[in-house]
């Protein structure tokens, strides 16, 4: 149940502590409950409905650290009316929050196995909480691999954090971009090309994948080719949402409601629908 308002349709005010521009069109908001309280607890992969006064409300995944719940952190892309208005918010402004909603990444279930995280573009944002959680109990996992693809070097999300993670001796972090100009010394190629080379034991691997739907489909194909089991692959879906609690009907994807059955799904549950058009 929601730790915000007891009526799940009524937003709770949160105060903007910081707005940070990440790339040319993405930004991070750090929020604190306006009426005080004990921060915000959530599970990696869940999302909130964020309301900008008088403009509207949109679902945004939580990108902060679930093990340090004092600050509520969201990273998104300024792409529609609401998110563009959100980017204009300043420290001290108030935002309405409903949530957290939805399913989460199988961080606990993955204990004892290898973990492969594959992210594309802004898809790294909802996976960052899973990375924090994995790192907070690193000893419970065998290999941990993060494969991340972005459009260009300039559009890599959380570059400093990626560098920090890459320096961990017990993490494999590989970043690739779709295209680059001369200065880039890293990988060029789509993120799916990293999968065949990545060091993990496919037979006992939990995969968590988030990015554009096309990227997820091709990523899953490569993971299956490597021998990762269908039910060990998890993907995060995106659909239109108005209520986030299963009443408005907008987020239906075949028999599932992305808001309450997802956004994180076991691939096996929805694989038949992913290759059908306009479901």
């Amino acid at each position: 149940m929601s730790p915000t308002n007891p009526d799940p349709m009524v937003p709770t005010p949160f105060r903007v502590q910081r707005v940070r521009q990440e790339t040319h069109d993405t930004f991070t908001l750090e929020l604190e409950p306006a009426r005080g309280g004990n921060g915000f607890s959530f599970q990696a992969g869940q999302f909130n409905m964020l309301y900008v006064f008088g403009v509207g409300e949109v679902p945004i995944s939580i990108s902060g650290d679930p093990t340090r719940s004092k600050m509520l952190v969201h990273t998104t892309r300024a792409v529609g009316t609401v998110t563009k208005a959100m980017r204009r918010l300043k420290r001290g402004d108030i935002l309405g929050v409903r949530g957290p909603f939805g399913s989460h990444w199988p961080v606990e279930v993955a204990a004892g196995s290898d973990v492969v995280i594959v992210a594309g573009g802004i898809g790294l944002a909802p996976l960052r909480p899973a990375m924090y959680e994995l790192l907070s109990r690193r000893d419970q996992y065998d290999k941990v691999v993060l494969l991340y693809g972005a459009r260009t070097p300039e559009e890599i999300l959380f570059p400093r954090e990626l560098e920090r993670w890459r320096a961990h001796f017990d993490l494999e972090v590989h970043v690739t971009v779709d295209r680059a100009m001369g200065g880039w010394r890293g990988n060029v190629g789509v993120v799916t090309t990293l999968i065949q080379k990545a060091p993990f034991n496919a037979r006992s691997t939990t995969a968590m994948v988030c990015g554009p739907e096309v990227m997820m489909r091709f990523t899953v194909m490569e993971l299956l080719k490597r021998g990762v089991k269908t039910d060990n692959i998890h993907i995060s879906m995106e659909r239109n949402m108005k209520c986030a609690i299963g009443f408005c009907g907008h987020c239906q994807f075949g028999p599932v409601f992305v808001c309450k059955d997802g956004p994180v799904f076991v691939y096996g549950r929805i694989k038949d629908l992913l290759t059908k058009w306009e479901i």
Binding site: Y51, G54, K242, C243, C248, G249
Partner: peptide
């Protein structure tokens, strides 16, 4: 049962309301 929500404001932008309305797929 599908619905949508509409966020409306007055002209001055000082008052806002959220309405729930029947919607259609």
């Amino acid at each position: 049962f599908c619905t949508t929500v509409e966020d409306v404001t007055d002209l001055a932008g000082t008052e806002a309301e959220r309405w729930r309305k029947w919607d259609s797929c």
